[in-house]
Amino acid sequence: MQPNVISLVSIGRHPQSGRARRSEQDGRALELGLKLSGSHLQVAHAGAYDSTFSGSAEETVLRQYAGMGLKQMTVLKQSSDADVIPSLSHYLESQSAQVVLLGVRAESGESSGMVPYLLAESLGWPIVSRVADIVSIENGEAEVLLALPRGQRRSVTVTLPFIATVDNAAPEPRQTAYGPGQRAQFNAVDTPEVLDELRINWVEAPAKPRPKRLKVIKAKTAAERFKAATAKAQGGSGKVMKNESAQEKAQAIFDLLIEEKVIR
């Protein structure tokens, strides 16, 4: 039996240009959805859909998702300052979804990563986060690989229906093709709209650079302060070993590997 898979996508943000784009993780969620259920995959986006939609950056991005091979896509009509949870959970329930895939964190807005958890809570479904792959879905259970740092993986099973957030370690989204993207249909759906009250009081500003924390030495004496001030800063130009013996050179490399904890 084909599981009923729904991928949710949002408008991403290019880290360099700040322009709207297909989000990295949502693209992967869509890719994973296509792997699981091919052309049966349903894709939804909650967002603005009004007279300004046509030709907007949002439309361009949604068509980029569609260009991965979708014939159609659902748009749950929401204004930009709405809380999307009621709308999404209403939609997921009405579609009797079994597997819901989304990115770990949105690339724009609050990027809190709370949406999947709130959906899971409101639907009473289990949630697994940072999925690298869904290996199989059988007997009401999915075998899932979770991504851990540095290529490690954890295998878990989770009962259907469930929500999964897709990690950057999941397979890359396929290329989006212009033609199919342009031809895809949007099904706009009216859903309950709830204003996000809390956010209104927030102040947003461009991110301030965070100073990298220096290794602080609490100097208690003048000599120590002097030493701290003159200690060679980390980084800078590297150390070059030329005339030492091969053994010494190898030792230096080894020490660095130990210090960096890549050899244990």
Binding site: P15, G109, S111, W202, E204, A205, P206, K208
Partner: peptide
């Protein structure tokens, strides 16, 4: 941090 670390949200 918000919006892929591009903004600071004060709350």
């Amino acid at each position: 941090r918000g919006a892929s670390s591009s903004i600071d949200i004060t709350r």
